[in-house]
Write a protein that binds this DNA or RNA. Structure first.
Length: 501
DNA sequence: TCTGGGGTCCTAGGACCC
DNA sequence: TCTGGGGTCCTAGGACCC
């Protein structure tokens, strides 16, 4: 059995904002999306005030003022750096850290609890004892399908006889943790949570289970109960604890069950994670898709979402922004797109990938019922994948000139690097016609050296110290960010000052 | 007045092949 | 009464994640 952990930072962006402001420790803090649009993170105190995730700023402004809520614009330089520190800390316990998002990482801790033959320590010695004492009364409480959700199983009820398997059939007793291993896991979990908090200032929750989906579910449970109990980790290994806890977990909280799937699951009478775990995987595949089938299997303890030993190369990369003010001239739109394209090319170089094509899109305000709604986009392929700013940029600007309509008030635009491939793959790809008529070899070499110098300068003197003039000197389209905190850890000028009294 | 950004995966259906 | 079988590739759209 694998020991998979999911470490999830609590209210990550809000917690980051609190790290360098101890005076905000107990104050409600919310962090806004780009353009100061809506709430994307809330401290526990802000959640307690009833501020909803995704609430537009203008709707909560009055409440925020009255309740003394600290409102911050997003500061991704700060969050990214603190995230990196959290991940770095995790390396103390295992080299198998799989960063899933800016505030979450999967850990494969199996090795820590195995002996030299790769078996969980204490497996043999304690299994006997466990089966005698632990499992004596059978899996009490479960009386077959009827007892689970009452009536109203509807369609699922009909497949129930053949389709719904008894819990015992997929929770074999040999999937039980030896008691010594369990104690070790609990000790390690507490240590991880406490160390990360002390070293980075970020409060975290840790869920542990034999699969990623169960680890995710466990982290939800740890978050739910952690505030009250102070125990910021949870385990979902043994059949009894899985049954007990999954019955208390709403099906919508399961990883992979989103807004659209939830109503369909409700119609089937699936209310809890436990209900979902009992559905026949084949039924799920037939009526939904292979993704939902995998979710069911994972809830049963069967691993289907594997950590990739070598992660797949990224397939696309996009930079887009909503504008602070509407853009109504081609010159302004060119500046915005140029800036996005420059950023995208620089990011590709940093990640050592190159784009096979570029897609530019722009849209008007889709929410204004009185204004014309428009959503346009256009793509073009390169003769050979590129991450050179001049080439990527000029293609993006050509598309912009084709797309732009001066009669409309544009609200947002974006640039997508399409079908990104590894840089080395791109370099080895042959042209159909050699030499490339658009970009002769000397020109490409000059571009390459230019980009190299550009990246070097910007690494030394800060982002966008040197940039293409087409980005604009004083852009008017830049998103609102009226409440940004200092980039304490990534900008020399923003270092926090400590005064001795 | 004011509502984000950046990804991935899967399926269905059409075009095309033999 | 009656319309082959089996495959690949591509794209748009929908779902999910944070």
């Amino acid at each position: 059995m694998k020991i998979i952990g999911l470490l999830d930072c609590d209210s990550f962006f809000a917690s980051c904002e609190k790290v360098f402001r101890p005076d905000w420790a107990n104050r409600p803090v919310v962090v806004l999306s780009n353009n100061d649009g809506c709430v994307v993170a809330r401290s526990p105190e802000a959640k307690a005030l009833g501020i909803a995730m995704g609430a537009p700023l203008f709707q909560i402004r009055e409440l925020a003022r009255r309740a003394g809520v600290v409102v911050r614009s997003g500061n991704f330089a700060l969050y990214g750096d603190l995230s990196r520190r959290v991940v770095e800390t995790l390396g103390r316990w295992t080299p198998n850290v799989d960063v899933y998002s800016i505030d979450e990482a999967f850990l494969d801790l199996t090795g820590r609890f195995c002996d030299s033959s790769g078996r969980l320590r204490g497996d043999d010695a304690e299994k006997e004892e466990e089966t005698e004492t632990g499992n004596g009364g059978g899996l009490g409480g479960l009386r077959g399908l009827d007892g689970v959700s009452g009536g109203g199983l509807g369609e699922l009820g009909r497949i129930g006889k053949s389709g719904c398997v008894d819990w015992r059939e997929f929770c074999a007793s040999d999937e039980r943790l030896p008691a010594t291993t369990r104690r070790e896991i609990e000790r390690t979990a507490a240590e991880i949570v406490e160390t990360v908090r002390r070293w980075t200032g970020i409060p975290v929750s840790l869920g542990l289970g034999p699969t990623r989906t169960l680890a995710k579910a466990a982290s939800r449970i740890a978050k739910r109960d952690g505030a009250a109990t102070g125990r910021k980790f949870a385990l979902l290994f043994d059949p009894e604890e899985r049954e007990r806890e999954l019955k208390r977990l709403p099906v919508g909280d399961v990883w992979g069950v989103g807004r659209r799937l939830l109503p369909a699951f409700w119609r089937l009478g699936l209310r809890t994670a436990f209900d979902l775990a009992r559905v026949d995987p084949i039924y799920m595949r037939k009526n939904f898709s292979i993704v939902q089938e995998k979710t069911v299997r994972e809830l049963r303890g069967e691993r289907t979402f594997d950590s990739k030993t070598r992660p797949e190369a990224q397939k696309s990369l996009q930079i887009s922004r909503s504008f602070g003010a509407t853009v109504e001239t081609l010159a302004e739109m060119e500046e915005a797109v140029s800036s996005f394209a420059s950023t995208a090319a620089a990011k590709m170089r940093a990640r050592k990938i190159a784009a096979s094509g570029v897609y530019v899109y722009m849209s008007t305000n889709g929410r204004d019922p009185n204004a014309p709604r428009r959503n346009v986009g256009l793509a073009v392929n390169f003769a050979r994948p590129t991450n050179s700013t001049p080439e990527f940029l000029s293609a993006a600007l050509r598309l912009t000139r084709t797309l732009f309509d001066p009669k409309l008030a544009w609200r947002k635009a974006g640039v997508v690097a399409l079908e990104t491939v590894d840089e080395s793959v791109a370099a080895s790809r042959q042209y159909l016609f050699e030499p490339d008529p658009e970009r002769p070899a000397e020109r490409r070499e000059r571009d390459r050296r230019l980009c190299e110098a550009l990246d070097k300068a910007n690494a030394t003197f800060g982002k966008k110290s040197v940039f293409f003039a087409s980005d604009g000197i004083q852009p008017r389209w830049t998103p609102n960010a009226r409440f940004v905190s200092p980039s304490y850890t990534t900008d020399w000028n923003a270092l926090p000052v400590v005064r001795a009294n």
